[in-house]
Design a protein around this nucleic acid. Structure first.
Length: 112
DNA sequence: TGGCTGACTTTCG
DNA sequence: ACGAAAGCCAGCC
């Protein structure tokens, strides 16, 4: 089932995997959802380990402005944008269009 | 044990 | 509006 010892990363993975296709979330939102488990930086750092996992759509995680700040850590800087566009998300100049509408907050989606 | 790091966020200038 | 700096905290050496 699940491991009793839930690392901060695993919690982040679970949340990111819960992000619906065609939606995006922010580091701060995940950090806020996890609560005291860490700060927004920790989320980004967790993604650094997550990008190696196909189960974790790290490309759906962007910063507060909807900018693809983490694209630089992907296999290719364009992979992130291409992936988002592939899911129906409009990206312009490394920024998500209508980000406010596409924003997906785990705290809300999970009914917290 | 102690110190460095990091894909963010917010605030001051 | 833009730039730089501080705050944040868990993982790794």
């Amino acid at each position: 089932m699940k491991k009793d010892k839930t690392s901060f990363f695993e919690d982040v993975y679970e949340v990111v995997k819960l992000v619906p296709r065609g939606r995006v979330t922010s580091y701060g939102a995940i950090a806020h959802y996890l609560g005291t488990k860490g700060s927004a930086r920790m989320v980004g750092w967790a993604m650094n380990a997550a990008h190696g996992l196909d189960d974790v759509p790290a490309h759906r995680v962007v910063n507060r402005q909807g900018l693809l700040t983490g694209k630089n850590h992907f296999a290719t800087p364009t992979a992130m944008q291409e992936r988002l566009e592939s899911e129906g998300i409009c990206v312009s100049n490394d920024k998500i269009e209508n980000f406010k509408d596409l924003f997906w907050d785990p705290s809300i989606a999970l009914g917290l």
